[in-house]
Design a protein around this nucleic acid. Structure first.
Lengths: 318, 318
DNA sequence: TTATATCGATAGAGAAAACCGATAGAAATA
DNA sequence: TATTTCTATCGGTTTTCTCTATCGATATAA
């Protein structure tokens, strides 16, 4: 049995004429006759009772026809499903992001995204890097916004931007007087860190040349579970900390006694990338998503493609 | 899209392994890979996301799969429909019969039929010859029991038996004294006839050498609408009439003052045949039906195949 | 009755496809 | 590094589908 054969019997049943049915199916009449005969032989059933001047469907034929119509309907639905999917942006895109990035980046891009790609739907999740990588491998999410590099064989990543780390300290702190804060300044400080598992904690230690062991002894009991908590701790005078630039776009200085200022260190930043499975089929959708992100980032971050901002402006003028 | 391709994606989805799926479909792995790739290209959609060590179905693939399963289910149903139909006796057989035959023949065969072919279902109808022929042409019935010959190009007929005409007359009629009734006797009689349209009326006139015109003038007002009525008229003394042998198997003589006796005329009979469309596909079912009929006829009729009764008896002894 | 037209079935040839075995290529495992 | 395990790819073969041309039967028209 073939979908084609079912199409043929539907055509014959509706036109009650082999010639016209063949025409409707864009095949010759012998082709159609042959195929129907083949189907009838395969099923061992006569579907059409035909003489030279009449084609009538048998009772079994009628029953078969009903199912054939349903099959063709289902097949149509499959075609339509595929068609709807053709727009690579359509269909929900499941994106995960790390907690030190998601709450500050997503608000910047959600509105522009719905403006530029109204058909695109996002399903967001916020998890630690390791969890995101596992969900990525399990096909539970389509892509993740991470601080890279991450070592994963079957994952590809698209580098988006470098996000500098700022130093946050209480207003009564000596840093408040300084214009430039160097690494030597940092070495003397009590650096507050995020809880285990946050990549930002490890990166902050690297920037400040703090070794794991040294840290553990010192202040294992003072690790915050979120950036917001961390800044509360800073405001309460427990120390200072490194925060990613995007988290500092509010008016933290005036509100809570916490001052943030850029670090005068060349490598005090993290590279944010969009990570996805090497075999992921809708990479065009991901790229469109990334484009919108890059077009809506503040100047506090440096795009990996430095020519991008210029391009964007000239693009708008044309 | 092909039913085969849908089978393939179902197999891959269920085994999550191209090699094993191919094995399950009795094809080689390259064949299956190629077919799935072709389907994906045709739909413009990736159904399976595959790496060297994992095969995962995409969300669209999942949706397509659901419909594919429904399609295969419908296809299975078609196969089963055809299978059930394979028994040519199964499925209702729509049989029409003329009114002068049906009430006397059918009671003889219904019981033996259900005994011999329990799966066979009959749908009976009783109409005049012309109506039956038209319903036959319109595919509203599958076969008709008629007095033949009937001139119809696209119809075939299977001759069953010759049913003699008997003469029925009131008990006080001079025929009661006679042992043999010849055509010369008939000529003098007032012959009652069935209403227009009954083939029996025409046949009776032919047997008695009555011409149409002559008849019309004489007794246009005395034509019965059924054999029962006709016999009532005979009993009431309005004349005598010809009745087919099967209608005379009861005890008419004693009950109603009507006497029936065979005619001593060689051609005073009608040939009863099973008539069906030349293109009718279930002729084996008809033949089985005819066999049961022939095996259960009384000796008052002559089978067309004279060796039949003997065969039947020897058959039972073995 | 004889020509003409219509319709489905059939025959033979050509084109398309499905399929297979062998093998490449990539990744994990030993 | 060698081996194993997968899927993808490559030629070549076989099957199937499709075509044109034609037959045979029937109905219509002359």
């Amino acid at each position: 049995m073939t979908l084609q054969e079912l199409k043929y019997i539907i055509a014959v049943a509706e036109s009650r004429h082999f010639g016209r049915a063949a025409e409707r199916c864009f095949v010759s009449q012998p082709t159609l006759s042959g195929q129907i005969k083949k189907l009838e032989e395969e099923l061992g059933v006569v579907i059409f009772e035909r003489t030279n001047r009449s084609v009538e469907i048998t009772p079994v034929g009628e029953a078969i026809l009903a199912h054939a119509r349903q099959i063709m309907e289902q097949a149509d639905t499959i075609q339509q499903l595929a068609q709807a999917q053709q727009d690579p942006l359509a269909g929900p895109l499941r994106i995960g992001a790390i907690p030190t990035l998601s709450p500050y980046l997503m608000p910047l891009i959600l509105l522009p995204l719905t403006r530029q790609h109204p058909q695109m739907k996002l399903v967001l999740s916020e998890e630690l890097t390791d969890t995101l990588l596992e969900r990525l491998r399990n096909h539970e999410i389509d892509a993740a916004l991470l601080a890279t590099p991450v070592s994963e064989g079957e994952l590809d990543s698209l580098a988006l931007f470098d996000e500098p780390f700022w130093i946050a300290y209480p207003r009564n702190h000596p840093f408040y007087e300084k214009e430039k804060i160097t690494r030597r300044d940092l070495d003397k400080e009590n650096l507050l860190l995020l809880a285990e598992g946050h990549c930002l904690a490890r990166q902050a230690m690297e920037v400040c040349h703090i070794r794991e062991r040294q840290r553990q002894g010192e202040m294992a009991d003072l690790r915050a579970s979120s950036l917001e908590t961390l800044l509360q701790l800073v405001g309460a005078g427990f120390g200072c900390t490194l925060v990613p630039a995007l988290a500092m776009r509010g008016s933290w200085t005036t509100d809570s006694g916490v001052v943030a200022q850029p670090l005068a260190l060349p490598d005090a930043s993290r590279r944010v990338s969009l990570v996805f499975r090497h075999s992921y089929p809708r990479q065009r959708a991901l790229r469109a998503f990334a484009e919108v992100m890059l077009d809506n980032l503040p100047n506090t971050v440096q795009l990996v493609d430095p020519g991008r901002r210029a391009k964007k402006k000239t693009g708008r003028k044309q």
